Amino acid sequence: MEVRTIKVFTTVDNINLHTQVVDMSMTYGQQFGPTYLDGADVTKIKPHNSHEGKTFYVLPNDDTLRVEAFEYYHTTDPSFLGRYMSALNHTKKWKYPQVNGLTSIKWADNNCYLATALLTLQQIELKFNPPALQDAYYRARAGEAANFCALILAYCNKTVGELGDVRETMSYLFQHANLDSCKRVLNVVCKTCGQQQTTLKGVEAVMYMGTLSYEQFKKGVQIPCTCGKQATKYLVQQESPFVMMSAPPAQYELKHGTFTCASEYTGNYQCGHYKHITSKETLYCIDGALLTKSSEYKGPITDVFYKENSYTTTIK
């Protein structure tokens, strides 16, 4: 009895394709271990004539594949690729409408935090270190965002349907971005203890939790000093293409032309909904596939993004 075979390709990165001759009487799992086709788990399936010449994702289970996976995804987590594939199996079914010149995501599976993050990423200057993220990001900007969303979920250790947080998501993504040249110098002034300067680099240099107003941050924000008295913390120097200011959701007025974009969060910790506000020729609110415009805006804002380049204080 002759062994019926077909020729397929296996890959971990969709760049390096490895030619395989597979036995049609055995499952993919018996031949390769966990195997995925377009995100779908085909591990328990036997090869079919229609699979001839198709590319299958496999887990990096030998040295060659491990090197290829690390170079593309910059992670050695053995569960990463499987999590990416199972997320992709959902995100490829989502709709990605162009809204006001940006790629958004039609609401499904509690994905409003991903839509808000995706919209924000198209408006701030950011370059990702893992080629996987950078490639998928370019495709997302062009309207094909399924891979990018699935990668975000995998890097953030999230599953489809789980509630997510924009600030946490951005923080994970910033860790995989090139923020080497970003720098922030802060000064804390206390009447009792004097003053202390701190220099922050990388992710810490672009994120701040405690106030939404970048102007206020430049002037000074009140913080408790270690001595128990009130101290003032203010920005001395900022070198970065953008800054992200966050605070627990509270009524906040966004003035046209003073910011790049913002995240609105309605609801409580267990259950809520994100919308995205962007400042173009007027203010726009993007909620999944829905767009509304207004000249002014007041609502429960939790993150505001500002364009920056270089700032030095005039406070002496």
Rank of each mutant, 00 (worst) to 15 (best):
E2V: 07
V3G: 12
R4Y: 14
R4W: 11
K7Y: 11
V8H: 01
F9Y: 14
N16E: 14
L17T: 04
V22N: 00
V22T: 08
S25V: 14
T27L: 13
Y28I: 02
Q31L: 11
F32P: 03
G33Y: 00
P34H: 11
A40R: 12
A40H: 13
T43W: 02
K44S: 10
S50V: 09
H51G: 00
E52T: 12
E52P: 04
E52Q: 12
F56W: 00
L59T: 13
N61T: 13
N61L: 11
D62P: 07
T64D: 12
T64G: 12
L65H: 15
E68I: 04
E68P: 04
Y72H: 10
H74F: 03
H74L: 01
T76I: 12
P78H: 08
F80C: 00
Y84Q: 07
Y84I: 02
S86P: 03
N89K: 13
H90V: 13
W94S: 02
Y96E: 03
Q98N: 09
V99Y: 06
V99R: 03
L102T: 04
T103P: 01
S104G: 12
I105M: 07
W107S: 09
D109G: 03
C112W: 03
L114A: 01
A117H: 02
Q122W: 02
I124H: 05
F128C: 03
N129M: 07
N129C: 12
N129W: 09
P131D: 00
P131I: 00
P131F: 01
Y137P: 00
Y138R: 10
R141C: 15
R141S: 10
A142Q: 15
A142P: 00
E144L: 07
A145G: 14
A146P: 01
C149E: 00
Y155H: 00
V160I: 15
G161P: 03
E162G: 01
L163M: 12
V166S: 03
V166A: 13
E168M: 04
S171L: 13
Y172D: 06
Y172F: 13
L173T: 02
Q175N: 09
A177D: 00
A177V: 05
N178K: 09
L179H: 12
D180F: 06
C182S: 07
K183T: 12
K183N: 08
K183M: 06
K183Y: 10
R184Q: 07
V185P: 02
L186A: 15
L186H: 15
N187T: 10
V189K: 12
T192W: 08
T199V: 12
K201C: 10
K201F: 11
A205K: 02
M207T: 09
M207W: 02
M207C: 14
Y208W: 11
Y208Q: 07
M209V: 11
G210T: 00
Y214F: 09
Q216Y: 08
K218M: 07
I223Q: 09
C225M: 02
C227D: 05
G228S: 03
Q230G: 08
A231S: 09
T232D: 07
Y234K: 10
L235V: 09
L235D: 04
V236L: 10
V236I: 05
E239D: 14
F242C: 08
P248G: 12
P248R: 14
A250V: 13
E253S: 15
H256D: 04
T260G: 06
S263V: 15
S263L: 07
E264L: 12
T266C: 12
T266F: 09
G267H: 12
N268D: 07
Q270K: 13
Y274L: 07
K275M: 02
T278N: 07
K280R: 10
K280V: 05
C285R: 10
I286F: 06
I286T: 03
G288L: 01
A289G: 05
A289K: 00
A289I: 03
L291W: 14
S294D: 08
E296G: 12
E296K: 14
Y297V: 07
Y297D: 05
G299I: 04
T302G: 08
D303E: 07
V304P: 05
Y306R: 05
K307M: 10
E308N: 10
S310K: 14
T312H: 14
T314E: 12
